[in-house]
């Protein structure tokens, strides 16, 4: 079973890294969106969401993730997911999130992907 939802964040090289654990539902999605908004307002445009400890995401939770992607797109930013459980990866793929967001195996790979695209955030 999933653990209670929890979230931690850190900023590394101007990238926001949000690490979650537990069910990404309405509560989880709101918490992620709020954390994102706090950093977005301060100019962060590159975001990594590490879902290593979240094996279950529902569509309400996904709608928050989509909003984050849209906000970043409008601001020429980018979101990369990392450490995805195969079932979650498939869900996000079917919902079309990877058309506008990246995915990497680890947080480090995700951070490197920002370097690779030459879009190091402000």
């Amino acid at each position: 079973m999933e653990q209670p939802f929890n979230l931690t964040s850190e900023v590394r090289d101007n990238c926001l890294i949000i690490t979650t654990s537990g069910y990404v539902n309405n509560v989880g999605g709101e918490a992620i969106a709020a954390e994102f908004a706090r950093h977005f307002d301060q100019g962060t445009r590159h975001v990594v969401i590490n879902l290593a400890q979240s094996r279950v995401v529902n569509s309400v939770g996904m709608s928050f993730l989509i909003e984050i992607i849209e906000h970043l797109q409008e601001a020429d930013g980018k979101l990369v997911f990392s450490n995805l459980d195969p079932a979650v990866e498939k869900m996000l793929s079917i919902m079309g999130l990877f058309q506008y967001a990246g995915k990497e195996k680890t947080v480090e790979d995700a951070l490197l992907s920002f370097h690779d695209t030459g879009k190091k955030g402000s």
Binding site: N25, N26, V27, R55, V56, V57, N58, S59
Partner: peptide, 11 residues
């Protein structure tokens, strides 16, 4: 149970 909850958005 896990899948049923997530697919129906049950909390």
């Amino acid at each position: 149970l896990e899948r049923a909850a997530s697919l129906t958005n049950a909390s």
